[in-house]
Computed example of a mutant assay.
Amino acid sequence: MGQDVRRGGGLTTGEVARRLGVAPTTIRTWDHRYGLGPDDRAGGTHRRWTVTDVARLERMCALTATGLPPAEAARVARGDVAQARAGSARPGRPARPAGGLRLGDARQECKGVARAALRLDAAALDALLQAAMEKHGLVAAWTEVIMPTLQAVGRKWETSGDRYVEVEHFLSWHVSGALRRGAPPAAAGRPRATTLLACVPGENHTLPLEVLAAALAERGLPVRMFGAALPAESLVAAVRRTGPAVVGLWAQSRSTASRPLAQHVAAMEWGVRGARGKPVVLTLGPGWAGRTVPDLPRPPGLAEAVAAVESAVSR
């Protein structure tokens, strides 16, 4: 079948879905809603996805996994792939300025943040991050300024043979500090109103959870943040002790995303007989792609995660 597909000029939708770890219906939705379908729509109903088509979808997956709203992610994905193709089509003309970061159509503030990070200028970077959060609010600052800059640094690292690793670490550290400085004091825990956030065992990527914790605190919602690689038994103990309305479990990679753990937490109950409660468990992060847990929501981005928490707490 693979040979037939290659002779037919690309991959089928099902093969692309398996390669990306998403459902075929997701790919069809991205096609119909955001125009991320194959460039060549000829050849009847059996579409074939080329290398360029799949690159757009891979970019879409990466962007939505880090919190960018789907419509904005699709716009950036289309632009990035088109820019890459245009650059490769012009011999002798680089796709982006030498030494700079490719930031696409992100806000102008990204360029200042990127320059400060490249210079390892701590004072300037802190000032720019604070200004972005004050100007746009935390959710918009993350999705439109901070995250695109982090992604640009990551791309620079990937294409530069492990150079710029120090820039990524430097930027991440200062973003984490800016989130903590800008967040209001922790709200007092209320019965069945607290949100518990933790990385699953073996997972050490905490920055997206720190952003969510800060966004919830900004809205006056009580949060208990447990950070990286919380052991399963400790997670269960924390849930029992706090009786949270919501438990957010972050998994950056599929190897750490544990369906049994998520299902076990979702089944936990507490309270007096006749009025027992259960938490709403949110599976957060790209590690859950292709490992969706039935009946457990998987918000695609920061704004959706905040809305899911607010909805659960209000109930």
Rank of each mutant, 00 (worst) to 15 (best):
R155D: 11
T52P: 00
A186Q: 15
R7V: 14
G177D: 15
K156R: 04
M133T: 15
H46G: 02
S253Y: 08
P222H: 05
V265A: 00
G137E: 06
P97R: 06
A238Y: 03
D31H: 08
P94K: 03
V167P: 08
M268R: 07
R41H: 10
P260E: 14
R315F: 07
R56D: 01
Q252F: 12
R85S: 09
L284A: 08
A307I: 00
V113F: 01
A17H: 06
G2R: 04
R241L: 13
L63M: 01
T143N: 11
S172T: 15
P70R: 07
G67K: 07
T159K: 12
A62P: 00
A178Y: 06
G35A: 01
G44W: 15
V16H: 01
E72Q: 05
D40K: 06
A141Q: 02
G8D: 14
R75F: 02
R6P: 09
G287Y: 03
V22S: 01
F170M: 12
A77N: 00
H205K: 10
T29Q: 01
A186P: 10
A186N: 05
L11W: 02
P24C: 02
Y164Q: 05
T206G: 07
S88N: 12
R119G: 08
T292H: 04
H136V: 04
A267Q: 11
G271F: 06
R93I: 02
N204Q: 04
A198V: 12
G87L: 11
R33K: 06
V22H: 00
R192T: 03
T66C: 08
M133V: 09
